[in-house]
């Protein structure tokens, strides 16, 4: 087969694996059928492998580092997001979140394909070994932040689910002056630890209103109950950011080293590097907020959502709306 044809076939394989995998894993999220998880997880692995093979095939064919345009970089972004997610999913059994990661990765990958300009040699400033190190690091950090973003959203869904059932319960018990007593939400937070097997579903330890609703047979609550506890979701967000922030830091440092070689100063206040600095500041702030009890959980999750929006702005917004040294446009 002609190598460029191979490149196209792998791309289609990856896109379809992600699309079908996303559907399977969302279905798993809602139904908890094991076969859907196994099917979706296999597709995630296949799609991710196809992506790396695709980038390799492209490099083998053209001898041009395939990450120096928006097509290649979006492609690596999708691949790294899925790869980092697979790591989390295996380690913490989180396949239920995979549908969202795969769907977002597929959208970015499809968008990247629209930027495919064909084979293009690198302009002089991009002909640097730093480029080969810098781009994968930065793009991988975006992948980790995407994973943290998905966990944050799941946290918020469960949090507001709990709030909803808690207020409903207060209203009902006020009306009937009966029903089981549920501790107020904030109190529940501190009462959740324990090493004794007390028969409580660990995923519902810090969401008593949800636990009560589950026992009353609410379908929505039953579905939220399959998510990890709020405390665990919060820690998952933190762990994903703990991967992203050092990678972004290393990315900014290697970018500075490259700029020092190519442009005559390690820092130029170019829109791209400046936007990356802003995201870096937001995630450094997240880390500090996460050391505060009052901020851990809901507020930190919102913060992480906003920080990820700044990543998207830095990644795509700057390339598309703002011209500068990093703009990919010809």
């Amino acid at each position: 087969m002609h190598p460029m044809a191979l490149d196209g076939v792998l791309m289609i394989l990856a896109l379809s694996a992600y699309a079908v995998g996303a559907v399977a894993l969302v279905a798993y999220f809602l139904s908890r059928e094991d076969w859907l998880r196994n099917f979706g997880a296999s597709l995630a692995v296949i799609g991710c492998a196809a992506q790396f093979a695709q980038l390799g095939a492209r490099y083998a064919e053209t001898h041009i580092w395939p990450l120096l345009n928006l097509y290649g970089s979006l492609s690596l972004f999708a691949a790294m997001s899925v790869a980092i997610f697979i790591g989390f999913a295996f380690r913490y059994r989180l396949w239920f979140a995979g549908g969202f990661v795969l769907a977002i990765a597929a959208v970015f990958l499809a968008y990247g394909v629209t930027w495919d300009e064909g084979v293009m040699p690198a302009v002089p400033s991009l002909q640097s070994y730093w480029a080969k190190i810098h781009v994968p690091l930065v793009v991988s950090s975006y992948g980790a932040f995407l994973v943290s973003f998905v966990f944050s959203l799941l946290y918020l869904v469960k949090y507001y689910g709990e709030r909803h059932f808690a207020t409903r319960r207060v209203r009902i018990s006020a009306a009937t002056a009966a029903g089981p007593v549920v501790p107020p939400f904030e109190v529940a937070r501190s009462a959740r630890y324990g090493t004794d097997d007390d028969g409580v579903n660990p995923a519902l330890r810090d969401t008593p209103a949800l636990a009560a609703a589950v026992s009353e047979g609410s379908a929505v609550a039953g579905w939220l109950a399959t998510l990890p506890s709020l405390a665990q979701l919060d820690i998952l967000v933190y762990r994903a950011v703990s991967i992203g922030l050092p990678l972004l830091t290393l990315g900014v440092i290697t970018g500075a080293a490259w700029a020092h070689e190519a442009w005559g100063a390690y820092w130029q206040w170019d829109p791209k590097e400046t936007a990356a600095l802003a995201s870096w500041i937001l995630y450094a702030a997240y880390m500090h907020l996460h050391t505060r009890n009052a901020w851990r959980g809901m507020r930190c999750s919102w913060w992480s959502v906003v920080a990820f929006l700044s990543i998207i702005f830095c990644y795509l917004g700057v390339n598309i709306w703002i011209s500068g040294l990093h703009s990919y446009k010809v």
């Binding site: 206040w269 829109p271 400046t274 936007a275 600095l277 802003a278 500041i281 937001l282 702030a285 700044s310 702005f313 700057v318 703002i322």
Partner: peptide, 10 residues
Amino acid sequence: WGVLTIIGVV
């Protein structure tokens, strides 16, 4: 600091 940095990008 982050907000001022973003203003400079926009």
